[in-house]
């Protein structure tokens, strides 16, 4: 391989420039952090475990038929899965009333629609997006089925249609995005007979929650789950007992670190371009030495032949 010095730099320069254009605009984008978005406040003290929210969710989202009158399902701990966007779970063993009776509580599970969602940040193709008004929605047309969103989700929410060989989808609560767009409430919040969940702007819900904490001393523990967890979630919870049934999470949005690393490595193509330049320089120096040695070698080989 013989390269004149000028040619070498011409090609190197061209390759470097095209590298810069490929990776130039790849610094992490900020997703809209709107506290003006919608949310839901779940007051666990009010939930009676009637499963009406599951019924409404099932009907509105046309999910597979189930028997919602069967209350024995509450005996087992359940997770949202490919046929359920939301489930109610019963948790036992909390001595909370005045005479230390063991009472149980009912807790609704569904996507929390994080303010800074890990799933949407992680998704290779942007199939999951955070809408300005709150919901995190999924677009199956873009999805390649890598399931990285499921790895990323701190609440273990996205489920997968594992049994579907050709067109499996990621399944999760949509926050009834279609209904919210029409100015309606999500199906589950509409039907709740005890108003255990109320729908509204997130900041309004937060002030309601804080008012309830203030006006009912002893009724709740002093913690609004979702106010700060993973940078805040659209769904907020008030509980009479410690949130031991939910994962213990930090207040930093998890995508912060990965997006920082990405913009550090790829931002303005600085790192790749400088690596390219350094390697280019080293090989240029070595190449000069080499052409000298090569000439010697070929000279010797010529003698042998």
């Amino acid at each position: 391989m013989m390269l004149s010095r000028r040619n070498f730099f011409k090609i190197m320069g061209g390759a470097g420039a095209s590298l810069a254009t490929i990776t130039g605009n790849s610094h992490a984008g900020e997703s809209a952090e709107t506290f003006d978005s919608f949310g839901c406040l779940v007051d666990i003290t009010r939930c009676i475990g009637c499963r009406k929210c599951e019924v409404a969710c099932n009907a509105h989202n046309k999910l597979p038929h189930q028997d919602f009158n069967d209350m024995t399902v509450l005996d087992d701990y359940r997770r949202p899965d490919w046929e359920k966007y939301t489930v109610i779970n019963r948790h036992h063993g909390y001595p909370v009333d005045d005479v230390d009776h063991n009472v149980h509580i009912y807790v609704k599970e569904q996507c929390r629609h994080c303010v800074k969602p890990s799933c949407a940040s992680a998704c290779v193709v942007g199939a999951l997006t955070k809408k300005k008004n709150g919901p995190v929605v999924y677009d199956e047309k873009k999805c390649i089925g890598c399931r990285y969103c499921m790895v990323a989700c701190p609440f273990q929410i996205p489920a997968y249609e594992d049994h579907n060989p050709v067109t499996p989808r990621v399944i999760k609560c949509t926050f009834c995005y279609d209904r919210i767009e029409q100015g309606k409430m999500p199906a589950c919040a509409t039907i709740c007979p005890t108003q255990a969940m109320i729908f509204g702007k997130r900041d309004a819900l937060l002030s309601i929650a804080k008012k309830r904490l203030k006006n009912n001393p002893g009724k709740y523990i002093d913690h609004i789950y979702g106010e700060y967890e993973v940078g805040g979630t659209s769904w907020l919870y008030l509980s009479p007992v410690e949130f031991s049934f939910f994962p213990e999470l930090g207040n930093k949005p998890p995508p912060k670190l990965t997006e920082m690393i990405l913009s550090g490595v790829f931002g303005y193509a600085a790192a790749p371009t400088s690596l390219f330049a350094i390697l280019g320089a080293i090989s240029w120096i070595n190449n000069r030495k080499r052409s000298i040695t090569l000439n010697e070698v070929s000279g010797r080989e010529g003698e042998e032949k």
């Binding site: 610094h27 992490a28 984008g29 940040s121 998704c123 193709v125 199939a127 990285y148 990405l262």
Partner: peptide, 15 residues
Amino acid sequence: YSPMINWNFTSVLFA
């Protein structure tokens, strides 16, 4: 082929 059309620059997996 979706990642070639749908770019998500916040995704490590995309990179």
